[in-house]
């Protein structure tokens, strides 16, 4: 028998690792990978909750989440290509034209 708390703990740990990845790296691709990890953590919460309550909804949301992630990745990677073409670099801090 799996403890619900443990499943959530795995999800939380995954999420925090993703967050650490986002904060740690300055390269846009790695930041995106961090975002993916965080989203996976969220998926795990949905699936675990679905199993805990014996309901279908959690899994539905996990699927929708996956679809939205796909959309997000499509745009984000297109943007990566765009930024690369503009500046020949993927270091996020180089794109600081919004500085006040």
């Amino acid at each position: 028998m799996i403890s619900f708390g443990h499943a959530l703990a795995f999800a939380g740990a995954l999420f925090v690792l993703g967050l650490t990845c986002v904060l740690l790296h300055r390269q846009i691709l790695m930041i995106l990978i961090g975002v993916e990890i965080m989203l996976n953590g969220a998926s795990l919460v949905f699936v675990a909750a679905s199993a805990y309550w014996q309901q279908v909804d959690g899994q539905v949301f996990a699927l929708l989440l996956m679809a939205i992630t796909a959309a997000e990745v499509a745009v984000a990677l297109a943007m990566v290509v765009y930024l690369w073409r503009r500046k020949r670099t993927l270091v996020a801090d180089e794109f600081n034209r919004m500085r006040g």
Binding site: M1, I2, F4, G5, F15, V16, A48, Y52, Q54
Partner: peptide
């Protein structure tokens, strides 16, 4: 953040409960 998250999870009474067998 990790500690806070885990604390939040395990402070909740639901955390101790088991997940029953489930197949969708």
């Amino acid at each position: 953040i990790m500690i806070c998250t885990l604390l939040l999870i395990f402070k909740d009474p639901m955390a101790g409960q088991q997940i029953d067998d489930f197949y969708l």
